[in-house]
Amino acid sequence: MIKRTMLLVAAFSSMALVTPAVNAADETAAIEAAAEQLRALMVDPDKTKLEALIAPELSYGHSSGRIDTKERFVDDLMSGASDFLSITISEQSVQAVGDTAIVRHTLTGDTHSKGKDPARVSLKILQIWQHQGSEWQLLARQAAPL
């Protein structure tokens, strides 16, 4: 009986060691999926999807130094004031810390925003994501030119 109890304890202990790693991998995958959804929506905006993906408190820092709110960021994408023709993400890293995640990557893309000539952008991006309910939402973003 004691051997059986010890085997059960050992089995449950080993499961406890594996479960956090699996959960961490699942969370990283969910954060990466949210970041990819944002990339896709910046190229092909959908207001309903953008509003669901972005936290109401968004602080969105452009490489020019301008800071946007959620409302202005979404409005600029929907109106074409900010128009990304393409976005490629590289060198991405994701670090989950409780209900918060830090995503860093390099963004290269082509833009053709209203009133501006077409341009190629190369930026370093920092995003802060927050777990809200069952989803990850963008809480903050800061871009810096390369």
Rank of each mutant, 00 (worst) to 15 (best):
K114L: 01
A119Y: 00
G61E: 05
E135G: 12
H112R: 13
S134Y: 04
Q92N: 01
G80C: 00
V22Y: 06
L41S: 08
I128R: 14
F84M: 02
V22Q: 13
T5D: 15
R120G: 03
A140Y: 04
V74G: 04
N23A: 15
L138Q: 03
Q132V: 15
Q92R: 09
S14N: 13
D68T: 00
A119L: 03
F12Q: 08
E135F: 06
G65D: 10
S63I: 01
T106M: 05
P20N: 10
D68W: 09
D117K: 01
V103M: 14
L58M: 04
P56H: 01
S82H: 03
A29D: 03
F73N: 03
P145M: 10
S82Q: 07
A144M: 11
T69R: 01
R72I: 15
A21N: 14
D83Q: 11
W129H: 05
G61P: 11
I102L: 15
L126H: 10
P20W: 13
S14T: 11
L107P: 02
S13I: 05
D68M: 10
A52W: 02
R4S: 15
A96M: 03
G98F: 02
I89K: 14
I54L: 02
D46P: 13
T69W: 00
I128Q: 15
S93R: 12
V43T: 05
L50T: 12
L50R: 05
I89G: 08
D99Q: 14
M78N: 02
L53A: 02
Q132W: 08
V94I: 01
E135Q: 11
K49D: 13
M1H: 13
A35D: 14
W129P: 01
Q142C: 08
P118C: 04
Q127A: 13
L126E: 06
F84L: 00
I2Q: 15
P45S: 05
L139V: 04
Q37K: 15
S63A: 02
A11H: 11
S82K: 03
D110A: 09
Q37S: 09
A143T: 02
R120N: 12
L123F: 05
V22D: 09
K114P: 01
G133I: 10
T106H: 06
S122V: 08
F84T: 02
A33Y: 06
T106K: 12
P45A: 08
E71S: 10
H131A: 14
F12T: 14
S93G: 09
K49P: 00
I2C: 11
I31N: 00
Q132F: 09
A25W: 08
R66S: 07
T106R: 13
F73I: 11
L17R: 06
P45L: 10
I89M: 13
I67F: 11
A101N: 04
P45R: 07
D46Q: 13
P56T: 01
A96G: 04
I89P: 05
S63Q: 00
L58I: 07
A30R: 08
E51L: 06
E36C: 12
N23H: 13
A101H: 05
G115C: 00
D75N: 03
I125C: 08
L50N: 07
P118E: 04
A35M: 02
V103P: 05
V103Y: 12
S64R: 04
P118N: 09
Q95G: 06
W136Y: 05
P45C: 07
V22A: 13
I102G: 06
V43M: 09
M42V: 10
A35I: 00
A119F: 00
I89W: 13
